[in-house]
């Protein structure tokens, strides 16, 4: 038997062993047959003893054997690799129904989130946002707004006082956000559209009232501003908040700082509440000429409207909150419910 046949037959005799080879065995076989000093490269040593006619035939036969061995070993190696990968993947299986590592998202407060929405609504309508102090003087909170000291209207707003002495300069916790009106008119010249939103304080408290609550208030001042403009603005706001179907009613009322004055009611069913009748949402009116005069604006030149409403009840209705105390209790079980407000 010539060496070529010997190698060929030794390769063939190993067939079953080769097919069952593991990774180590394959490396060993590859080295034995294909390595630098392996059996197949060793066959080339016999090339010199062959005639010129035999050389190409012999060479081709060796090459054919090399290819067969190589491709067999490659194929087996690939099979092993893929089996190993499969096994690994199986061993790496995880239970994806378990929760992922996450820092649980927090929540925004429903009242503050509603405030954001209202502010966006009005900036979209061209209103600038103004701010005013919560501790203010009686002048800004009352007198400038045409609420005379002996006027029963001061009883309407039970006031928390910070000063024992009473007078224009004495301090109160503001009873309404309207105190920003005189501040705003002192700081800038009309025409303007302004909105202010913040906490106000009243000396009464029960299941539906908190002594501290949130109001939003708007003021528009220009030449020729009318009650008709006021109505259109309020309609726009209410429909933006409650949908196009919202039905609104303006009812004559009284505020010392507006004339004419109105209260705004929405039809409960039209805003999605499951009950008949009207629900009061706020007050509004044409700015009283005395308020303008008190702040140095000529009521013959400029006129305007103002409106205000409370946010607490609006937020409570929106989220089905029954107890106003929950809004300020800091109870995690309550706060965690308000996902998706960001």
């Amino acid at each position: 038997m010539n060496p070529l046949d010997e190698v060929r037959s030794s390769w063939a005799s190993l067939a079953s062993e080769i097919n069952a080879a593991d990774e180590t065995k394959l490396v060993e076989l590859r080295s034995r047959f294909l390595g630098k000093k392996g059996e197949i490269p060793g066959l080339m040593r016999h090339l010199g003893s062959l005639s010129a006619d035999e050389k190409p035939v012999y060479g081709a036969a060796v090459q054919a054997l090399r290819q067969e061995v190589e491709s067999t070993l490659d194929r087996l190696q690939e099979q092993l690799r893929s089996a190993a990968l499969k096994a690994r993947l199986e061993s790496e299986r995880l239970d994806l129904t378990l929760p992922g590592d996450r820092s649980e998202a927090g929540t925004l407060h429903p009242l503050v989130a509603l405030r954001d929405e209202i502010l966006d609504l009005f900036t979209g309508m061209g209103f600038e946002i103004a701010d005013a102090p919560e501790i203010d003087t009686e002048w800004f909170n009352f007198s400038a707004l045409n609420v005379a000291d002996d006027h029963p209207a001061r009883d309407m707003q039970d006031t928390f006082f910070l000063s024992r002495e009473r007078g224009e300069d004495s301090l109160v916790l503001r009873t309404h956000t309207s105190n920003y009106q005189p501040h705003a008119m002192r700081d800038r010249k009309p025409p303007f559209r302004l909105l202010s939103c913040g906490q106000v304080y009243r000396c009464d408290s029960d299941a539906t009232h908190s002594p501290v609550f949130t109001q939003v208030e708007g003021l528009v001042l220009d030449k020729g501003i009318s009650f008709s403009h006021l109505k259109a603005t309020i309609y726009t706001m209410v429909r933006a908040l409650y949908g196009e179907g919202a039905v609104l009613r303006f009812r004559p009322s009284f505020f010392p700082f507006t004339e004419p004055s109105a209260e705004m009611d929405v039809d409960c069913r039209s805003v999605g509440l499951d009950r008949d009748g009207w629900m009061e949402i706020g007050g509004c009116g044409m700015v009283h000429p005395n308020v303008l005069t008190n702040s140095g604006v000529d009521p013959e030149e400029f006129q305007g409207f103002a409106f205000g409403f409370g946010l607490d009840r609006m937020a409570m209705l929106r989220h089905g909150i029954k107890d106003i105390g929950l809004l300020t209790a800091g109870d995690m079980r309550f706060l965690r419910q308000f996902k998706g407000l960001a």
Partner: peptide, 13 residues
Amino acid sequence: ASRGLSETLSLRL
């Protein structure tokens, strides 16, 4: 809020 905290609003009295 995105770091897991809940916003609260305390009574200012």
